[in-house]
Design a protein around this nucleic acid. Structure first.
Lengths: 246, 246
DNA sequence: TCCTACTTTCTATATGATATATAATTAGCA
DNA sequence: TGCTAATTATATATCATATAGAAAGTAGGA
């Protein structure tokens, strides 16, 4: 009975490193512009150079980090224009995915998924009420992505996941007003989903994404006008030496 | 004057390997399902293991190869359903890119690019006439992608390039009739571009992609019905799929 | 005896770790 | 500014380990 080890699926250290780095980037622990040094990562994560290097290549192809030869890689920064572009693409792709989710999914799975979506929505509303926004990012992510999983379109799902990967989730969900309006926009989507009205659901999703993007960008500009050049990536990069200790 | 070396931009061996493998996959030299063995690649390309391994990770993140831990990676196969999905996504994204190309581009660059597009179209028509289809794949690729470059939407361009990367170009352009009709559909696109009619151009592009996909799939099914289970890699691929189940 | 199904080795290969060398950039210094 | 030294990514080589797949062997039944 020493074969219990077979039950725990093997995950390569490379994939663990990818997970860890992705988490650190998406949570804002690694700020845009910050350079990733292999030796430091190696020490920090307790693995040798080989998995680190391969993990970095995976992230590079994902577009989360950008590398120049012999200069290493650094966390990419996303500009306001790029955010707008991403949102435009998201609106199209996620609209399509929503439509296909309604059209393609079998009733059984659809019902259970809809239940799950409403549960998530309920949780998010409670978070907004209690002003504890920290879990909303993950809840919202699951809300959207689990819906798109019903579309049975692996390439579509993959592209949407790619786009989400570039969204700075940690800064989107820190404004209570933005969060409230965004969560509110989920309701017409859920309504259309309940009615199994594919076109209406797709449209509601598109509107939701476009409006949220506009609101977020406006909020971002206001904040930047109030506190210009506060924590931009370039400064952070030059400060990376100080961060080495931490 | 010994700095001439600065003129030749340094490319890492890793990137050379990526290029080489991509070329081999897209040209059909490496068939779907074929396993890539690191040591063999290392010998074949004359580089050590490290660049090979990193290159494989880049291709894996691109989705061109699929790897399971300790099993290595193999060239992914694309099913008819997936081709249809990709085409649907392409129609949306490339329609959007076409619209933005008309809307966003400055007149100067637009004029020269339009000239280039018409030149490409002319070359493709000549190829079709002379039944020499081999160069059409690359010409068509440049026709489309150079148009989208005008959209100034890096994420959009990146996603479209990703999708193109998965198209089996070497088998799409081997049927003279398909090629002729596909090239013919470029004309309304060019017409709308000349008129700077963004909406019409986007629509023509969408129609072009959707119709081409339908025609190709029909042709593929006819061929498979005529000669089922043809040799090329299908056996190996179905083996790797069976593995996935277990 | 032969065949099938199962189990156990064995081997090829991916993965991970380490050491060393080279090339390019960066930082420090004059 | 220009040069030198240190730092770091890149590349090669070698080895250890874990796993999957294949081969070989074994047991049971006809």
């Amino acid at each position: 009975m020493d074969k219990l080890v077979l039950l725990q699926k093997y995950t390569s250290k490379r994939d663990l490193v990818v997970q860890a780095l992705r988490e650190m980037i998406l949570s804002g622990q690694l700020v845009p512009g910050q350079r990733l040094r292999q030796e430091q990562l190696s020490r920090m994560l307790g693995v040798s150079a080989t998995p680190i290097r391969e993990a970095i290549r995976l992230l590079e192809a994902d577009g989360l980090v950008h590398g120049e030869t012999h200069c290493g890689v650094s966390v990419v920064e996303i500009s306001a224009d790029e955010f707008q572009d991403i949102s435009r693409i998201r609106a199209m792709l996620e609209g399509l995915a929503t439509r296909q989710a309604v059209d393609r999914c079998d009733p059984q799975a659809y019902a259970t998924s809809l239940e799950r979506l409403e549960d998530l929505q309920c949780q998010m509303e409670k978070c907004v009420e209690s002003r504890s926004l920290e879990p909303v990012a993950n809840l919202n992510r699951e809300f959207h992505l689990s819906l798109y999983d019903l579309s049975f379109s692996p390439y579509l799902i993959d592209m949407i996941r790619r786009l989400w990967m570039h969204l700075p989730g940690y800064m989107i969900w820190e404004n209570p007003d933005l969060a409230a309006t965004s969560i509110e926009q989920h309701k017409p989507i859920l309504g259309a989903l309940r009615a199994r009205h594919a076109e209406a659901a797709a449209h509601a999703m598109q509107v939701h994404i476009e409006l949220s993007a506009v609101a977020f960008l406006q909020n971002l500009r206001e904040r930047e006008a109030a506190a210009p050049r506060s924590a931009s990536g370039r400064r952070a990069a030059s400060k990376s030496r100080a961060k080495k200790r931490a």
